[in-house]
Each structure stands twice: as structure tokens, then as C-alpha cells.
């Protein structure tokens, strides 16, 4: 910044002149892309898709479509869906927000940094949202945890910056609540996105990109969110310190074990931690000194698990290059509180 004391009022003409000599921003040099390739507009009764590599992290929009099946198997910068009726829509990871406006009877599967709706009716959303989803002036909104995988999804998630382990899908905030009724609810745990689709739909979009909407091989972990209730067994904090490992292969191995021993995840978070925090949450033992080293190099993931924790403890797999922590009966409730309170506090803006 320049010399503050020297500033004087600039007349409009001076400002005008400055506009001509303004610095060159990256968008002044943007490659020439045709916006028409980055939207679905005014379609009726058709199935359309974009394949991996066709969108490459650009902004995408869907407008004024009716009775359509629309797929984007690529990551996007942001997504808006406006004035659509009776459509089934899937969009790959969105670096920014997904904003749904003036839509009715839409089935949606999305993963994003932010999820927002306004003036919508009856939208079923299979959602993975890194932050708390919000709805405004919307009714009959239903939510489920997104379960999906296809060959290039992991790479796309990575380049979008969406975290696999921060999912607030069930923690809806309604700006316009009504008395005696809720504008939103959770879909039954048995709900599946592919019931809106046939094999032909998927293969007509791409035979080589096997898209599976099942929890069996889902890249996004299944969390029960506010579906969880007492009676499913004990709860524990399961943490993974990734250190220098920069993929999630080991974490997915661990999650397979969780599934196999009648346990499930209530919620999951990914965060960074400093030494003080590691000690506060995981104690000051010899082990936590190791945790500390790992926390300096990479993220810490925490799962609240419920179910048969003893079996889980005895079958924890050997993992390569990462550290695993599973709380004991004695420490579980304290650990869970410490971990999730810390995350909520540091991530709430």
C-alpha cells in the first residue's frame, strides 16, 4: 500500500483514467471457452451427460429443464440449478457452493463445500457437504448421505478440495422455519439414489465410467448423522493421523473393517491440529508424542463410531504409514466431546 498521508481525493475522471491502465488479472487472459458447453438449458424429457475431463473444474449451471436425467461426471467450480422440474441430477465434486433455486420434484446427488436452496419444493438430496447445508423458503426437503464411486472420482475430489470426511449432510439449518412442521426431514436409511435410474440411463451416458451409487464401495464414508440413536451399542472415537500419506487408501481399509464388525459411523471430521490440541485430546503418553509428529505433517481424521467396539478393537487392521487411535470404554465419551468440540469451534465460520 502506498503513502497514506499523501492521499487526496481523486475526481471521477482520474479514476476513469486509471481503469485503462488497470493491472492485468488472470481472467483477462482466460482461454476462450464456450459457456454453452458448461450448462444444460431448456431441455425436456432427455438424458444428458458430461464425461470426466469435459468440464475440468469450470463453473456449471442447469436451467429450465423438465423431466430430464442429467449427469456431470467431472468436478466443477460451482453449480447453480434454476427452475427445474421433475429431474434426476448428479454432479461431481464442487469446489464452491451448490445453489438450488425455484426447483420442484428434483432428485439430486452432489458433493460440495456449501449447499444452499431457496424457493424449492420436494427436493431429495443425496448430499456430501463440507459445511452446514442451509435452506430458505423451501418445503418438503429430504436429505440422505451421498454414497457413490466411479473410477476418476477420487482424483476429482482431490482437485476440488472437497474433504471426504467433513460431511454435514444431516445437520440442516432452515432460515425460514414454520410452526408445528418441519420443512426438511431425513430420507429413510434404506433410500438409494439409483432407484431413480435404470441401467440404460447410466450406460447411455457412459459405458466406460461405471458409476455405482452403493455404500459398498462408496468413496464417501456413510455416516448416520442425526439418524443415530441409542441402542446400537457403545460409541468410541476412532482417529487416523495421516502424517505424510496423501491418499486415503488406508483409511478406506479401516472403514471396511468398521463395516465388517457391525459398527457404523455417526459422524466424521477432518482437521489440522497443533501440539497443544493433540495433547489435550489424546493425552501426554509416549504414543501421543508420535501422534504429534504426524499431526505436524498432515491432517487428523476423527470418527464417532457406534456398535460392537470390542470386536472392532480386536480386528483393527495393520495400516501402512498412518497412526490409528481408538478410545477405550473409560475415555470414549470424553474423547468424542473433546475432538468434536474442537472441530466445531475451529470450523464455525
Amino acid at each position: 500500500m502506498g503513502n497514506l498521508l499523501g492521499f487526496c481525493y481523486k475526481s471521477e475522471t482520474v479514476l476513469q483514467k486509471e481503469e485503462d491502465t488497470k493491472p492485468v488479472f488472470s481472467w483477462d487472459k482466460r482461454e476462450d471457452l464456450d459457456p454453452a458447453d458448461y450448462c444444460f438449458e431448456d431441455l425436456e424429457g432427455v438424458t444428458r451427460g458430461k464425461l470426466p475431463g469435459q468440464i475440468n473444474g469450470q463453473q456449471f449451471s442447469i436451467e429450465n429443464c423438465k423431466d430430464c436425467i442429467l449427469f456431470v461426471l467431472d468436478n466443477v467450480a460451482s453449480l447453480t440449478v434454476d427452475d427445474c422440474t421433475n429431474c434426476v441430477i448428479f454432479i461431481g465434486p464442487s469446489k464452491g457452493s451448490v445453489f438450488i433455486r425455484d426447483c420442484t420434484d428434483v432428485k439430486l446427488a452432489v458433493c460440495c463445500q456449501q449447499f444452499r436452496t431457496r424457493d424449492c419444493k420436494r427436493i431429495d438430496t443425496y448430499l456430501h457437504s463440507n459445511t452446514q447445508p442451509i435452506i430458505e423458503s423451501s418445503v418438503g426437503m429430504k436429505f440422505a448421505c451421498l454414497q457413490i464411486n466411479y473410477p476418476l472420482l477420487a482424483d476429482q475430489v482431490k482437485s476440488s478440495g472437497v474433504s471426504l470426511f467433513n460431511n454435514e449432510w444431516s445437520n440442516i439449518y432452515d432460515f425460514t422455519p414454520v410452526e408445528h412442521n418441519s420443512n426438511f426431514s431425513l430420507l429413510p436409511e434404506t433410500a438409494k439414489f439409483d432407484t431413480y435410474l435404470t441401467e440404460e440411463h447410466i450406460s447411455s451416458i457412459s459405458s466406460s465410467n461405471k458409476v455405482a451409487f452403493s455404500s459398498h464401495n462408496s468413496l464417501f464414508p456413510l455416516t448416520v448423522g442425526t439418524h443415530s440413536r441409542d441402542g446400537f451399542g457403545n460409541t468410541a472415537l476412532l482417529s487416523v493421523f495421516l502424517g505424510q500419506v496423501d491418499d486415503y487408501v488406508e483409511v478406506h481399509k479401516l472403514l471396511k473393517t468398521v463395516q465388517n464388525c457391525e459398527c457404523r459411523l455417526r459422524r466424521s471430521k477432518e482437521t489440522r491440529m497443533n501440539t497443544d490440541t493433540v495433547i489435550r485430546i489424546y493425552g501426554e503418553s509416549e504414543r501421543s508424542q508420535n501422534f504429534n509428529k504426524f499431526a505436524k505433517d498432515g491432517p487428523v481424521i476423527g470418527f464417532e463410531v457406534e456398535g460392537d467396539i470390542d470386536t472392532l478393537r480386536s480386528t483393527l487392521p495393520e495400516l501402512q504409514g498412518v497412526l490409528v487411535y481408538l478410545s477405550t470404554d473409560k475415555t470414549s465419551s470424553k474423547d468424542i466431546n473433546n475432538f468434536f468440540n474442537y472441530v466445531d469451534m475451529t470450523m464455525s465460520t
Binding site: S97, T131, I134, F175, M347, T349
Partner: peptide, 11 residues
């Protein structure tokens, strides 16, 4: 700026 939620009040 990668983890910002819609604002419910103010910051």
C-alpha cells in the same frame, strides 16, 4: 478460505 459456511448471523 476453503471451509466457509453460509453465514447465519454475522462475522
Amino acid at each position: 478460505i476453503t471451509h466457509i459456511m453460509p453465514t447465519q448471523g454475522f462475522n
